[in-house]
Deep mutational scan, measured.
Amino acid sequence: MPVRRGHVAPQNTFLDTIIRKFEGQSRKFIIANARVENCAVIYCNDGFCELCGYSRAEVMQRPCTCDFLHGPRTQRRAAAQIAQALLGAEERKVEIAFYRKDGSCFLCLVDVVPVKNEDGAVIMFILNFEVVMEKDMVGSPAHDTNHRGPPTSWLAPGRAKTFRLKLPALLALTARESSVRSGGAGGAGAPGAVVVDVDLTPAAPSSESLALDEVTAMDNHVAGLGPAEERRALVGPGSPPRSAPGQLPSPRAHSLNPDASGSSCSLARTRSRESCASVRRASSADDIEAMRAGVLPPPPRHASTGAMHPLRSGLLNSTSDSDLVRYRTISKIPQITLNFVDLKGDPFLASPTSDREIIAPKIKERTHNVTEKVTQVLSLGADVLPEYKLQAPRIHRWTILHYSPFKAVWDWLILLLVIYTAVFTPYSAAFLLKETEEGPPATECGYACQPLAVVDLIVDIMFIVDILINFRTTYVNANEEVVSHPGRIAVHYFKGWFLIDMVAAIPFDLLI
């Protein structure tokens, strides 16, 4: 008679799926529990143990900040960024110097990925580790590398530091407007667009060049630039800015003055950032001319202004700041037409079709709590990747769950009947059967004279019903998954307890 339990259901295979997918890609990662103190490590794979030199037993239950890997060259700011990422709910990448158990130093890129439950609360953290440099290539500990984003994938490793954006290309926007319009339909740009040429040739750093990471940081200074100062900065030398009595002219307006920039070969870094931020506020060169004239017309309804409409929906549905990093990277690809469009465009503009998908598509409701890094690593669709929660398995109709209350009560009843059979069957065979043979035949009273025979008949009927119930009862397979398919249940029961239950259900007393 089957006594099969499996009270692990309803099970959740999400954690096993993450481990299996990460292991298949030869990654070095740990999984931490966000619900406990210090976000203790609950799993670390073999790749991480080989990377740091510690065994799994030495890593388990330690804080996922990996303070046991810190050393003299470990930056405090990087460690603080990892700790801050564990307090938030967004994906974050941090470069930090770690030390192995043998004392060797290596520069590592740590990717902190939160995993949320159905309520939107962070319950786990996945920390992925990628070695960037070994100890002989690690720089000085005073050099802070965590304020910069990861290198873009479309640049060669040897040319990542030679990417320079020439400031004269930004200063000569109005001069290039006529050349853009003359391109017409034969050019790649839309009317009114501004073409910015980027020099990728390796050259020595000069005062006129600005690194790509500095251009990325310009967006942080746009908020500090007032509207009046932006307007004066875009007017140009024809209309000098008016300053109040006793007030000095704005240095932001002076930063885009061609006369002032041409007199000296070098520009201050602050002026460069502010000038680029001011130019980015204009949607095209037409807006710059309109600002000089004193009238700013409404933005025209053409394809170039609607190019950012799908980007707005993608940004609203993005799951991490990696989408913004990807957008900034692609927006700086050289030799393309940049349409400086305000994100607050007309909502009635139709979304044009684009061959290049900048932001990841909208994630469906079932995966809105899973970050983009987890979705990318697992390579699963929205119909396959579940949320991290207890999910009731989908069972067929008329199927009994093996952990249901009805099955528990039924098993206790069958257990009592088995005990009765084990006690009274030998007793009936030894004593009652002998008395029946010696006594007179009682054929007239039937079952009324033999109450134990009636009980034995009921017990046999219950055993037959138990066999039928076992054909529709779920079970737990070797992978700790609840199986509810009727065919698989029948095959599993035939290979197991079916023969024993059938022999126990045969009414031998009635056959004798």
Rank of each mutant, 00 (worst) to 15 (best):
R164W: 06
S266Y: 07
A244W: 12
E365H: 08
H221P: 10
A285D: 14
F48Q: 01
M124L: 05
A169L: 03
S178M: 06
P240F: 15
L107G: 06
A350H: 13
E208W: 03
G158Q: 15
G158K: 07
E372S: 15
S278E: 11
L109V: 08
T270L: 05
Y327R: 07
M218H: 10
A142E: 14
V94R: 01
P251C: 14
A244Q: 14
S153F: 04
V113A: 06
P157V: 07
R312I: 07
G24C: 09
S209A: 03
P310M: 15
P241H: 15
A175K: 14
N339E: 07
F14K: 08
V222H: 05
R20N: 08
T17Y: 12
F106A: 01
A172K: 06
K116E: 06
G236S: 08
C108K: 01
G345V: 05
P2H: 03
V115A: 05
T13E: 09
L311F: 08
A97H: 15
S278D: 05
A190P: 07
K344Y: 05
L385D: 04
S379M: 14
D321N: 09
T319W: 03
T329P: 15
S284K: 07
P114Y: 01
A285E: 12
C49T: 11
A228H: 12
I358W: 13
F98R: 01
C44P: 01
R92G: 13
A80K: 10
A79D: 01
S264T: 07
I358Q: 08
T216H: 06
A293K: 15
V8H: 13
G246V: 14
G47K: 08
L378R: 02
V295N: 07
V198W: 03
Q11S: 10
C108Y: 01
T174D: 06
S379C: 05
S272L: 07
G189I: 15
C64F: 02
E365Q: 13
V341N: 07
G184E: 06
N117I: 12
I30E: 01
K362S: 08
L378E: 01
P300L: 07
M133W: 15
R164Y: 06
R281V: 11
K116W: 13
G236I: 08
K21H: 11
H309G: 14
G192W: 01
I330K: 13
L155G: 10
A253T: 07
A244M: 11
